[in-house]
């Protein structure tokens, strides 16, 4: 494993809960690795599986989808749809030869600044252990 590996992780955050939770982590000045680039979407259910797959094919070492806790969705049930798609995506990833742990779905509420920090730190550690996205090697050939 390369010592200097800094993973590139795409983080889709739902506007109402997780993006707000990430903001609260910031307001509380909680430090975390810079590996996750957050992308604001209105709902975790808006995260197009094709976008997730594309991210992996284009070399993302990890993808995080974070939304409201079950039952908290601002749009009633978007996070349930996200969860369903997530389950299928995990299967697809395995067939692509990607460790399914590279995709993570987390529930982070607007008051959970520390939890956001924890999710980001843990996930980054996990991806570091997994090493770079193996598909990247193939696609760059």
């Amino acid at each position: 494993m390369k010592g200097e590996f800094t993973p590139k992780i795409v983080g889709f955050l739902c506007n109402w809960c997780s993006y707000a939770g990430a903001d609260l982590a910031g307001t509380s000045k909680l430090k975390m690795p810079p590996s996750v680039s957050s992308i604001r979407v209105m709902c975790s259910g808006r995260v197009d599986p094709v976008l997730v797959a594309t991210a992996f094919l284009r070399g993302a070492d990890g993808v995080l989808v974070a939304g409201c806790h079950p039952g908290d969705c601002h749009y009633e049930k978007g996070n349930y749809y996200a969860r369903r798609r997530f389950a299928i995506l995990k299967k697809v990833m395995e067939t692509l030869g990607l460790e399914s742990e590279r995709l993570r779905l987390s529930w982070v509420s607007a008051s959970e600044g520390p939890r956001f920090q924890e999710v980001i730190t843990e996930f980054t550690e996990k991806i570091k252990k997994l090493g770079p996205n193996p598909v990247k090697e193939k696609t760059s050939l």
Binding site: W16, C17, C68, H69, G71, D72, S111
Partner: peptide, 8 residues
Amino acid sequence: NMECATCM
């Protein structure tokens, strides 16, 4: 529903 009050 155990909804997060802040999110609400």
